[in-house]
Each structure stands twice: as structure tokens, then as C-alpha cells.
Amino acid sequence: MSSYYFEKIKRLHALAEIGLEYNTIPYDIERYQEIRDICLEMLEELTRIPVEEIVPVIEERNGYRTPKVDVRAVVFNENDEILLVQEKVDQLWALPGGWTDIAYSPGEVAEKECMEEAGLAVKAVRLLAIMDKQKQQMPPAFEYVYKIFLLCEKVGSTISVGSETCDVGWFNENKLPALSLPRNNEAQIKMMYEYKRGERTDPYFD
């Protein structure tokens, strides 16, 4: 799959959805519908995923399209090891985190996800990075995603698996497990260690 064309089709589809939401001219509405349908057909051809499975993910039908937000908790222990969880969905490892929830701040999401996925009580204390997933050499996805990385301090001391994880552990920077690349990559983990060592101070953003 060409990542370039994949992202362009998603952008064109988003514009068609915006046109359908705000346009009142019947002729224009018909054309926006046709553009949207062509985009879905192209996505189906590129991904080999049926249109009926693509639509619930990519179409919001509730106004102006905006990126989804993914929050990741960055937690270190006294040995300068980073906390990672093994995802049930792909058996690979990631920083605790997930989609933001209505009525929760980014900090609250990081704290909640860390407890749910790693069984660890933490306190979000610092913004480290806001990244555009498309610009981070990560696998293409139907959603357009902003990723927020928050430094969290341990409040508790014990860790345990959650309903969406099958393992949890602390890892050295040079001995990272196989990472869940849709969620985080090695460059991002390395960047978090740069903040830990004081090599970076200002928040990163794309």
C-alpha cells in the first residue's frame, strides 16, 4: 500500500464529508456524495478491506472532521527503565495509553489508561510531545491521529495486567521488546529517554 496515496484519499474523503455536512445546494451534495463513494472504493481496493468495515471507522457524520487523539503515559522507574504493556490485539509492546475519552483531560486519560493496562497508579506531570502520526514513519491507518506523550510519576509500586494487556514490565532503553508499531516506535521511545536524561527540555511538536 502506498502511504502517500492512502493519506491523500483519506484527506479527499474528509473534504467530501465536510461538504456534505455544510452544503445545502442539491447539485453540490450529489457531487460530494460521489466523491465520498469513489474514495471508499479506492480505500477498499488499496486495503482489501470491505467498504462496510471501513465506513464505521472513517466516517463520523457529525460535522467538521478532526483528528482523533491518542494519549500515551511515559513512566520510568528508579532504574531508568520505561514501563511498557503487551497488547492482546497483536502481542506486541507499547506505552500505556489509548484514545481520549469525553469528560477526561489528557492527563486524566494517561492516569486512567496506566491503571487499566498496567495496574499502576501514576500522576501526569509534564507534556513531552504532541505528534502527528502521519509524520512519524508509523503504519498508515484510517484515522488521522495526533499522539500526546505525557510524563507520569509513579504513585503506586505494583504492576499487573489489565483486560487489554497480557503482560507488563519495565525495560531498559537498549533492550526494548518488539514494539506495537501502530501505537509507538523505537524513535519515539528513544525520544522519551532523551527527556529523561535532560537532553531535551522543550515539548516536541510536529
Rank of each mutant, 00 (worst) to 15 (best):
M1C: 11
Y4W: 15
Y5P: 01
K8Y: 10
I9F: 02
I9A: 03
R11V: 03
R11F: 04
H13I: 08
H13N: 14
G19K: 03
E21G: 04
Y22S: 14
T24G: 08
I25K: 15
P26Y: 03
P26T: 06
Y27Q: 15
I29R: 13
Y32F: 13
Q33M: 15
L43W: 01
E45N: 15
E45I: 04
L46N: 14
L46M: 06
R48H: 14
I49A: 11
I49R: 10
E53V: 13
E53S: 07
I54H: 08
G63F: 02
Y64S: 14
P67D: 07
P67R: 12
A73V: 04
A73P: 00
V74E: 00
V75W: 00
F76D: 08
N77Y: 05
E78I: 09
E81K: 01
I82Y: 00
L84G: 00
V85R: 05
Q86V: 01
E87P: 09
K88Q: 15
V89T: 15
L92P: 02
W93I: 02
W93R: 03
L95W: 01
P96T: 01
G97P: 00
G97V: 01
T100A: 04
T100S: 14
T100V: 05
D101R: 04
D101V: 15
Y104C: 02
Y104E: 06
P106C: 02
G107E: 00
K112N: 13
E116V: 03
E116I: 00
E117R: 13
V122M: 06
A124I: 06
R126Q: 04
L127E: 07
L128H: 05
D132R: 15
D132F: 02
K135T: 11
P140N: 03
F142K: 05
F142E: 10
Y144K: 14
Y144A: 07
V145A: 13
V145W: 02
I148H: 06
I148D: 00
L150C: 12
E153F: 03
E153W: 12
K154P: 00
K154L: 05
K154G: 05
G156R: 13
G156F: 01
G156M: 09
G156W: 05
S157R: 15
S157A: 15
E164G: 08
T165E: 00
C166E: 11
V168M: 06
G169S: 11
G169T: 10
F171Y: 09
N172F: 05
E173F: 02
N174D: 08
L176C: 02
L176G: 04
L176F: 01
A178W: 06
S180M: 01
P182R: 11
R183L: 10
R183Y: 03
N184L: 07
N185D: 02
N185V: 07
A187K: 11
I189F: 10
M191P: 04
M192L: 07
Y195W: 04
Y195E: 09
Y195S: 05
Y195T: 07
D202C: 10
D202K: 12
Y204F: 09
